[in-house]
């Protein structure tokens, strides 16, 4: 190989087509209520994806948004997280990221 000069590239990338899946950021794989993956949808939805998002509570428990909404509406829930019994409130900083 005549060319030993490292600066002079022999092989050069012109274009790179990368494929990726997007996932919800969560420390868990599945919803604590319906036990379906976040990449699947809640039992009431027919299609996964943007229309069935994930929600995170301040207690760092994750659910499908629809699942936890349904739980909170239930009077017996007393608006507590179904996993740790702390008062439920959504993590707000997710909206900050959008900006």
């Amino acid at each position: 190989m005549a060319n030993n000069d490292a600066a002079d590239f022999d092989v050069k990338i012109i274009k790179w087509n990368v494929v990726a899946f997007w996932k919800w950021i969560a420390s868990e794989e599945e919803c604590g209520i319906c036990r379906f993956e976040f990449e699947a949808c809640c039992p009431d939805c027919r299609l996964p994806g943007e229309s069935c998002p994930m929600a995170e509570g301040k207690c760092h428990h994750y659910f499908h948004l629809h699942c936890i909404q349904k739980w909170i509406k239930n009077v017996q829930s007393k608006r507590k997280c179904p996993l740790c019994r702390q008062d439920w409130s959504y993590v707000e900083d997710s909206s900050e990221i959008v900006l």
Binding site: D10, V11, K12, I13, I14, K15, W16, N17, V18, V19, A20, F21, W22, K23, W24, I25, P53, M54, E56, S94, S95, I97, V98
Partner: peptide, 18 residues
Amino acid sequence: SGRTLQWLHYRSTMEVSM
């Protein structure tokens, strides 16, 4: 927001000049 990416390198392609 709230989403992360998982790279699927085995499906990715590059155009390389030789």
